[in-house]
Design a protein around this nucleic acid. Structure first.
Length: 291
DNA sequence: ACCGCACCCTGAGCGC
DNA sequence: TGCGCTCAGGGTGCGG
């Protein structure tokens, strides 16, 4: 679900709830590949600790402990990191939603998809990490321990330059969209913002990276930075699962030009938006505005 | 080194 | 109602 803007908003909103509070207890679900670090190790290591910082690297959240250990969180496709005070229908299945009276909707009790529950020594809210599909990840790193998932990340997408893209695109026969999704080239772009940025840049997603001119790469880089910043300003995209940690929806989905608009009219030229597979991902573009 | 693909998992929505 | 299918904002690991 979440790409750079959603992860960044999550970081900003959850930071004051996670940092500087002594952890009383951590509850988890059973071991699964969601837990790269086993649940019992997490519980033992985190109890009594307080986190001192929370930063974002690409789509990863990295929390740091006092003695230098790091807790890596990745939201995958359906991960939700939020306060126990958050209220949102996106935390409930559709059947659960419809069986509730409107005024009850949004009340949340940890369910089988709530893989992490942080309880704190103060009487403030708990912090929950819920993930229906379990494509998210949680991992603990010892002080000074390197991690290749983090180390292989490319430049942060908010800072991507045309020069960087142009350099990376040489010798790459793959589609330009696949290049944008490659986290070792630039970190943070996912399926929505790749499609949106390529629309604004006027470039078809399926074109070979190798065929891009320097000027086109400049345009794509500019649009990536602009679209991501704009999405952060509007609270990110809440399309199916994403909510901010306080339970609020983003609004960027209302500004989408192509993503999930298959068959609808392009706002610029009124051609129907097309969908095809590129890099095994659903890909949306305007056949008229993008060449 | 790079490429495409299978796979990890659960749920929603569709046509029949 | 139920079945079978497709689709979903993520990333990894494999063989070619």
């Amino acid at each position: 679900m979440p790409e750079l803007p959603e992860v960044e908003i999550t970081r900003r909103t959850i930071e004051p709830l996670l940092v500087g509070r002594e952890i009383a207890d951590v509850k988890t679900t059973a071991p699964s590949y969601f837990f790269i670090t086993p649940p019992d190790v997490l519980k033992k290591r985190l109890r009594g600790e307080a986190l001192v910082g929370l930063e974002r690297k690409g789509k990863y959240l990295v929390a740091e402990g006092k003695d230098g250990f790091r807790l890596l969180l990745h939201l995958g496709m359906t991960g939700q990191l939020f306060s126990s005070h958050a209220r949102s229908v996106r935390l409930l299945s559709s059947t659960a939603r419809s069986s509730l009276a409107p005024e009850e909707q949004g009340a949340f009790e940890p369910d089988r998809h709530t893989h992490l529950q942080f309880k704190f020594c103060d009487d403030g809210p708990d912090v929950f990490f819920r993930d229906v599909r379990k494509f998210g990840k949680v991992m603990l790193l010892a002080p000074g321990e390197q991690n290749e998932r983090l180390d292989r990340l490319g430049d942060d997408a908010l800072d991507v330059t045309g020069e960087k893209l142009f350099g990376a695109s040489r010798k790459r026969k793959t589609a330009i969209k696949a290049l944008l999704l490659d986290q070792s080239v630039i970190a943070g772009v996912g399926n929505i913002y790749a499609d949106e940025a390529l629309f604004y840049a006027g470039v078809r997603p399926g074109r070979r990276a190798l065929g891009m001119t320097r000027r086109e790469c400049e345009g794509i880089a500019t649009e990536i930075r602009r679209v991501l910043k704009r999405s952060i300003e509007t609270g990110g995209s809440s399309i199916s699962d994403y909510i901010a940690p306080d339970g609020t929806d983003g609004a960027y989905q209302d500004e989408r030009r192509v993503y999930a608009r298959t068959g609808e009219a392009c706002y610029e030229c009124h051609s129907p938006i097309r969908r095809k597979l590129v890099a095994q991902r659903g890909t949306h573009y305007c056949p008229q505005c993008q060449s």
